[in-house]
């Protein structure tokens, strides 16, 4: 026969477990999703991507992360999205610094590079210039390219960083070729460098 004290103890324990466990479980979802996603990311220099983006077989935490940070991401076989939040030295990209993105000839059907502000939106500027692509960028004679990220006017390919605080650069590779088609290939592929030139 179970006594009344034991029943009370079990009830109290159950309530504590449900309330405390529920709160902990709920508020740790995003940190766990960030951890799981970053743990499965493929990186190359400042660039990072995840071949599970948009995939029907992705881990639930990766799907949760993508839903919050890049809703309607298509699968990597169609378009590969690489993002950079830091320069080649691992320092966060901030809008009061000037950067140079130096890229080799990228082996893909079409690509573009876009800069976003800390909210994930394109940055307002008088030139209405938010990105460069393989079809509208000025290439160097050897097929490489240089893009300047700066608040102040630069000659050549210039992405104004306007009134942003921190920056996020996206490299989209549409119809990515074999050089980027899987994690091993991507880790060793030549991707653009992001070099800090100085800060204001």
């Amino acid at each position: 026969m179970i006594d009344i004290k034991t029943i009370y103890k079990v009830l109290i324990a159950a309530v504590i477990a449900l309330v405390l466990g529920g709160i902990i479980g709920f508020f740790t979802v995003n940190p766990v999703a960030n951890l799981v996603t970053s743990g499965s990311n493929v990186t190359n220099g400042p660039w990072s991507t995840n071949f599970a983006y948009g995939s029907t077989g992705a881990n639930p935490y990766v799907k949760a992360w993508v839903a919050e940070n890049g809703l309607m991401a298509v699968s990597a076989s169609l378009s590969l999205y690489l993002d950079a939040y830091a320069d080649d030295n691992g320092q966060p990209l901030v809008a009061n610094c000037d950067y140079v993105i130096k890229g080799p000839a990228l082996k893909t059907g079409y690509w573009n590079i876009t800069v976003y502000n800390e909210n994930g939106f394109v940055i307002a500027n008088a030139q209405n210039r938010y990105s460069y692509s393989s079809t509208d960028i000025q290439f160097e004679p050897d097929g490489s390219f240089i893009i300047y990220l700066s608040k102040t006017l630069k000659q050549g390919n210039w992405l104004p960083t306007g009134n942003a605080k921190t920056l996020n650069v996206y490299l989209r590779l549409h119809d990515p070729g074999p050089d980027y088609s899987n994690a091993n290939a991507l880790k060793t592929a030549q991707l653009p460098q992001i070099i800090k030139e100085g800060c204001q």
Binding site: L71, N112, Y116, N119, G120, V122, Y170
Partner: peptide
């Protein structure tokens, strides 16, 4: 409407 739209 969505974060990180592609301007191109």
């Amino acid at each position: 409407d969505v974060v990180r739209p592609a301007p191109d």
